[in-house]
Simulated scan of single mutants.
Amino acid sequence: MSTNDGSSMKPGRITLHDVAAAAGVSKSSVSRILDERLPRSESESAKRVRQVAAELGYVRDISAASLRRGNTSTIGVVVPHLTDTVMAMFYEAVARACQKAGLFAIVVATSRDEPEADRAAAETLLARGVDGLILTTAQLGEKFTQELQLRNIPFVLALRRSGNGLASVGDDTLGGYLATRHLLDLGHRKIGIIAGLSYSSSSSDRLIGYRKAMDEAGAEIADGWVVPSGFDIESGAEAAAKLISHPDRPTAIFAVNDNTAIGAMSWLPSAGLSVPGDISIVGYNDIPIVRHLAVPLTTVRVPFDQIATGAIELLRSTTLGPNDRIRIATPTLIPRRSTARNASKDV
């Protein structure tokens, strides 16, 4: 192998020393210029080093850098399901945030929110030497995060909180309020909710937002209008069937995630009902498919990139005050065609 200046170079992995020799600068200068975690220099020397590195095919040796720093630059991410679109979107956001921070994300999927499976997944990641954990599986009242604190293991909760440890979440109470307020503004007063899982803070907070909006509007919540559910399509269909069979049937439904909203929308035609002609529906998360449905879904958009960036910043921070332990990102209502003004005279 030869460089542009005619010097020869032995075959094999290109090192910082090789780049430094070819560029005519010190090895420490090359290391600093090529370190993606540092501000990018646009000096002529820096441009020359990057050009030489590209021509030689230099690839940064992450493992060697990790050994020098005493860490692995890897973050473990625990999610309930890899097949869940929300979790896939969040993991991609974490991967982007890690790349910007010079880190690498490893994901381990757990089994249906089971605490022991969550624990096993976290222990697997810790055994692989990750520098910290991002947990999306927190359950209200659980003990595992307390154990991690006692073991001085760096971790941050994301999307959900448990009351223990650092957390980066969306403002789910505000999101639930925005969804319900939208339906109220369209003239609906009989609004049911597909409420999700009670141990999930995201579900419970969205329910709080729903109740707050209904209370402000003076709209009573009938017994049976709050239906617990899973987060999957089938659960949404089952919950919709319960709401539609209610003797005082709602004219609108707020589903605390998009999958359950899709399930409700898919079931309603079997009852002879249309969306939004007979029933208005609002979902939550704004997963990509909902804008492409036959009736595009009104939903609440969650800023996953902001939540992921907040999680990484919390995990890496060494100076946090008592008021800095949680990051809260603001959601946005996205109106589409699944909601319409209430045409019923019985409001």
Rank of each mutant, 00 (worst) to 15 (best):
R160A: 10
P154H: 03
T180S: 00
R211E: 10
R161Y: 13
K27R: 13
T110P: 09
G263T: 04
S201I: 06
F231M: 11
R325S: 08
E142K: 01
A138Q: 02
V30C: 05
P331I: 05
L197V: 12
A21G: 11
A138H: 07
H81Q: 15
S168T: 01
L157M: 01
D113W: 06
S31K: 07
A54I: 15
A240R: 06
A340Q: 09
N323G: 13
K242M: 12
G230I: 02
S229D: 07
Y177C: 00
G277K: 11
P269G: 10
S45Y: 13
D324T: 07
P11F: 07
L243H: 00
T110R: 12
S274V: 09
I193M: 09
T74Q: 11
S45R: 13
M89T: 13
V290R: 05
D18F: 08
L314M: 01
T318L: 12
R69K: 14
R211G: 09
S2C: 14
P154W: 03
T74C: 07
M1L: 15
G230P: 01
K143M: 12
T3N: 13
F104K: 12
T173S: 14
I334F: 00
D113N: 14
A117S: 15
E55F: 10
M89V: 07
M265Q: 04
E234P: 07
V300M: 00
I62M: 15
I33N: 03
I326Q: 15
G70E: 10
L273D: 11
K212R: 15
L140H: 14
A311P: 00
R151I: 04
D113L: 13
V94H: 06
H292T: 14
R291L: 09
S66C: 07
S270I: 06
G76I: 01
D35V: 02
S200Q: 10
E238Q: 14
L183F: 05
T330D: 03
W225D: 08
P296G: 03
L34P: 03
S274P: 12
W267M: 14
A93N: 04
Q146R: 12
V226G: 05
S43Q: 06
I193H: 08
A95N: 09
T318K: 15
N257V: 00
M87R: 11
G163Y: 00
V290L: 02
R32P: 04
I191T: 01
G141H: 00
D113V: 08
V282W: 03
D305E: 07
V30H: 06
R291K: 10
D185L: 07
S338I: 02
L38T: 09
A217D: 02
I253S: 02
A88S: 12
V94M: 08
T173A: 13
G310H: 00
L135Y: 05
A122N: 09
V78C: 02
D324L: 08
R301F: 09
D278W: 08
K212M: 14
S338H: 05
A213V: 04
N257M: 04
S28F: 11
P39L: 03
L125N: 05
Y58V: 09
V86P: 12
F254D: 08
L333K: 06
S63Q: 11
